[in-house]
Amino acid sequence: MSTFQYYRPQRFEELWQLMVEYNNAFSLLAGGTDLLVRLRKGRTNSRALIDIKGLQELHGGIQEINGGLRVGALALMGDLVDDARMQQHFPALVEAMKWVGSTQIRNRATLTGNICNASPAADTAPALLVYGARVNILGSLGERTLSLEDFFLAPGRSALNPHEIVQSIDLSYPETPNGSSFLRLTRRRGFDLATVSVACLLIPEAGRIRFGLGAVAPTPLLVIDGSGVLTQTESAQVAKESALAKLAERATPISDVRASKEYRQAMLFALMSKAQHIASERLNQSRS
């Protein structure tokens, strides 16, 4: 482990000052479930750890905002999984969070931290993408809001500037009726990282289906079909398959130690059709 300074600012001015002082050579510490592993492995050049848990403003938890929920930067996955509003409106996200690490990890890890790492395989990203999450960013120069899609730039790189942090994530309740699902393929049943993950949100009245795709491109990917082919039960199987295949084409998976490119491609299509199937079944159940 390398040596570093530890800070726990109480005010944002202190935070901005530290961020300037360490000019990119710092890491923000919230849950620390990824950071500590990287530190131990010497995979970070950070000279400072800035613990943001001293900032009261970030402890907002889960708040209802107009037509949706606002998830504070320090909200824990364990709490989010247990939240009835989350379960009711964003079931695919809750499913995805249940896959993250173990109970102990979820009681420590934040949702915001999971997206700030900008991992292409981030478990929560596909579901957040299909629900159209927006990221509220706070910096020394002011506030701005980005769609999550625009937030991810490259593996490990987000749109955050060196003097900015994520303050909260906004989720609008999706149009009803809707059906959603999350699927994740791993090599073993116990804790594992995703080989491929897929979230699906189906809104029949708009004729729209949204897929969030994980671990198949440099960033988590959002693909949308608004043609209605995939939301209408009466569509021909061939038409459905070709629409799904067209969406899956947007993915650019690679071969690595977890899976081959060919396997990821095959699995992406299989998972997308299964996710779509589960989402429409859930939609039917909610209607009946």
Partner: peptide, 23 residues
């Protein structure tokens, strides 16, 4: 798993897949 220089690519507990109790 090795690369073509005999360097180990998955020397960690995430990518060397041991069965867990769930498996």
């Amino acid at each position: 798993i090795f690369d073509d220089k005999a360097i180990l690519l998955n020397g960690n507990m995430v990518d060397f897949k041991l069965p867990t109790s769930r498996d």
